[in-house]
């Protein structure tokens, strides 16, 4: 089984009094080493689907397999440590912790999982910053950084634990087009060089242009899949 993500009949409902179905019987297999994009109009359920893959939300019904492992039986704590070890998150907003410097922010996922980072891990954080072009930001606090720099710190943070799967929800949604191109280039490079599995949400077809596979979601269903054409 070489699918990094396998979704089996995923349904998602929201609400208690007014129940809304957001996802309808989603079946999806994503192979390893690919850059996949979910596109679609606003409210179509892209983020919901990505968060289910990222174990931040639980589907109302259906099964999620990550890297061949059925996660449906996992406890809340097990899900948390699975997210910590195997999944890197990049969100539309950088979500850095304002109380910590860029370098410290990058190290936090390691710290949560394994305790105080050894020299080796700190060097890796420095290397990631250098590679991403933000080495001069290491001792700065998030509010001292530009939007593009903040998002790049978040990308470095998502990579620190060498995750299996990188999930990005509109990573360029908050950036100008120049910075946005730079971040996309960086993400493509990470997939190519590190053989990373990356799933990204965007509603912008141009942004999705350079990826391996584009899955279009409309009204909670897969409307179009570039791999199936």
């Amino acid at each position: 089984m070489n699918e990094i993500v396998l979704l089996d009949k995923i349904n998602k409902f929201y609400g208690d009094e007014v129940v809304v179905q957001v996802l309808f019987d989603i079946d999806l297999a994503i192979k390893g080493g690919q850059f996949t994009a979910f596109i679609g109009p606003s409210g179509s359920g892209k983020s919901t689907l990505l968060n289910i893959v990222g174990l931040l939300e639980t589907p109302t019904s259906g099964a999620v397999f990550l890297d061949g492992q059925d996660i449906s039986g996992m406890s809340k704590d097990e899900l948390a440590s699975y997210r910590n070890e195997k999944i890197g998150f990049i969100f539309q907003f950088h979500y850095l912790l304002p109380e910590f410097t860029a370098l410290e922010n990058i190290l936090i996922p390691y710290w949560i999982g394994k305790g105080k980072p050894p020299e080796k891990v700190v060097s890796r954080a420095m290397y990631l910053m250098e590679r991403i072009g933000i080495e001069m930001c290491s001792n700065k606090y998030p509010h001292q950084l530009s939007g593009g720099q903040q998002q790049r710190v978040a990308i470095a943070r998502s990579l620190i634990n060498r995750p299996k799967l990188l999930l990005a929800d509109e990573p360029t949604g908050n950036l100008d087009s120049k910075t946005s191109n730079m971040v996309m280039e960086l993400l493509r490079e990470i997939v190519r060089v590190d053989k990373m599995n990356l799933v990204m949400v965007t509603h912008d077809r141009d942004i999705a242009a350079g990826v391996d596979r584009v899955i279009e979601i409309v009204d909670g269903r897969i409307n179009n899949d570039s791999a199936v054409e």
Partner: peptide, 16 residues
């Protein structure tokens, strides 16, 4: 709560 949400997304559990 914002920071806590981020920490939890990154793997901090409820007890932590």
């Amino acid at each position: 709560s914002r920071q806590l949400g981020i920490l939890k997304a990154m793997g901090t559990n409820d007890k932590g």
